[in-house]
């Protein structure tokens, strides 16, 4: 805000002594607009900006978007006010065929402009880096060896992308695999995102988590759900024909409810888990047909752990 407010002097500098002080007028037009816009953004919009505050990373992203909006609005309003003022005040009047004044530049204006933009940019870079660190990678996929991670023992959840669905494995609960994503409230979660075929992207929108699912890569992202409720999971990397239909819904539940769910699901899926390959950070997709065969032999149907259920569309 303060950095942006300094942006006003440059146009004021070349003002000629005679005539109205255009720079001051533009400044006075800009100032209230900028203040109102920033107040509106911070107070009215701020709490509703996406992606909400369902998790630590979502809240962090909301804060970042809010801060940048507050910085960007005065800059944008300044440029627009300036152009609006110029177009009205300095338009060519009827019958005036004269040229404008021969101003080739003004080194003070240029130097201050460069200084101000540099300060804003450097501030944003430092701010972004700090935010990235505070939020433990900000919910973005950090690859197999994350450098920003939460302390303690986060809940491990593996996200396996395949055309065109996500399945989830819980290695701390015997490695069962399910199509339901259930997370406990108030507990750090480490998503291990990988893929069996092409690149997908695991986007848990309300949780503020996005990590590409690359075949053969264990892409880790952290978040800590803060509120219970439902959230949407979408694939956000074009992955073929049914990319648009690759979404499902997850739930954040209380810790006790999560434990109950995990224990019962573990028992329920025990037969499937035995056939599945043991939990690993990445999988060899060539074993998929054998798994499907084994599943069919064991007479297991439905969505539980099936890699390519028959009702799925065929490959393109």
């Amino acid at each position: 805000m303060s950095a942006a407010a300094d942006a006003a002097p440059p146009p004021a500098a070349p003002a000629a002594p005679a005539g109205p002080n255009h720079g001051l007028r533009i400044f006075l037009l800009w100032l209230p607009l900028a203040v109102i816009a920033d107040l509106v953004i911070w107070i009215v919009w701020g709490p509703h900006l996406p992606p909400g505050t369902m998790s630590s990373s979502a809240a962090n992203q909301q804060f970042d978007i809010k801060v940048m909006a507050v910085l960007a609005a005065p800059v944008m309003i300044f440029v627009l006010t300036y152009f609006g003022y110029a177009l009205i005040v300095w338009r060519q009047r009827d019958g005036d065929t004269e040229d404008g004044p021969a101003l080739h530049g003004n080194s003070r204006v240029q130097a201050s402009w460069i200084t101000i933009t540099s300060v804003i940019v450097l501030f944003l870079a430092v701010f972004g880096t700090v935010e990235l660190k505070i939020a433990n990678g900000a919910g973005a996929g950090e690859g197999p060896s994350p450098i920003w991670k939460p302390g303690g023992a986060p809940l491990q959840v593996q996200v396996i992308g395949q055309q065109w669905k996500f399945t989830y494995r819980y290695p701390q609960f015997g490695g069962f695999e399910t199509t339901q994503l259930v997370l406990p409230e108030g507990q750090w979660v480490a998503f291990h995102v990988t893929s069996l075929d092409v690149i997908h992207s695991f986007w848990a929108y309300q949780l503020g988590v996005k990590a590409d699912a690359n075949p053969g890569v264990d892409n880790v992202a952290y978040t800590k759900p803060e509120h219970t409720g439902g959230f949407v999971v979408r694939c956000s990397e074009l992955c073929g024909l049914w990319h648009g239909a690759m979404f499902d819904y997850g739930r954040v539940v209380s810790m006790s409810a999560f434990r109950t769910w995990a224990a019962s699901t573990r028992v329920q899926l025990a037969a499937v888990t035995r056939i599945l390959p043991p939990y690993a950070t990445t999988y060899d997709p060539t074993v998929v047909p054998q798994i499907n065969k084994a599943m069919a032999k064991a007479g297991i149907g439905g969505a539980n752990g099936y890699y390519y259920p028959p009702q799925d569309p065929v490959q393109p």
């Binding site: 255009h22 338009r91 402009w113």
Partner: peptide, 27 residues
């Protein structure tokens, strides 16, 4: 992140040039 944000400085210069050119112009 830094290099990406840095690129807004030279891009901003294009705007500075435009705004300076509009100053007291006969548009």
């Amino acid at each position: 992140m830094l290099t990406t944000e840095l690129i807004s400085i030279p891009t901003g210069l294009i705007y500075l040039v435009a705004m300076g050119t509009f100053w007291k112009a006969k548009i």
